[in-house]
Amino acid sequence: MADHILAIDVNGDRHRVLVTDQRTLLEVLREDLGLTGTKHGCDVGECGACTVLVDDKPVLSCLVIARQVDGSSVQTVEGLAHDGKPDLLQEAFAELGAAQCGYCTPGMLISARSLLDDNPDPTTEEVQAGLAGNLCRCTGYIKIFDAVRLAAARDRGL
């Protein structure tokens, strides 16, 4: 098991972390960097709770070997706010009750951010498709769909 020095940018901060071959990005984020906002519900790519953005693309961080993302920039839920101001999605999720236990929420927010970046005005069907990889066991998703659409509308200045 060789060790490597991983250089990544997380939420705008540069980090160098010593990792083994098998260390996952999820472990680096939660254990090495203490960014526990990213959750995990399975560790094998089934639940979406660990979703983060790597170079603006959503990935399941539990399935990403940290070495593979050497030199990349990563965004987690802790980095969604801009200058201390919550992202519109974070506000809309809070306002509309889209988080119950809140455990799926960080991953859900990241997937939703990625969806809105690609499609600023999604229909409910498009939101459903965009969040299909993120399981939520509490809400029945309905308030999550509403929150994503509300944030999108606000983003478009409506």
Binding site: T36, G37, T38, K39, H40, T76, V77, E78, L80, A81, P86, L89, Q90, E91, F93, A94, E95, L96, G97, A99, G102, Y103, T105, P106, L109
Partner: peptide, 17 residues
């Protein structure tokens, strides 16, 4: 909204793990 909703969406809520 829930009284802790902004903590939840900012990723600040602490679970055991």
């Amino acid at each position: 909204p829930r009284v802790d909703s902004m903590d939840q969406t900012m990723g600040k809520t602490q679970y055991v793990d």
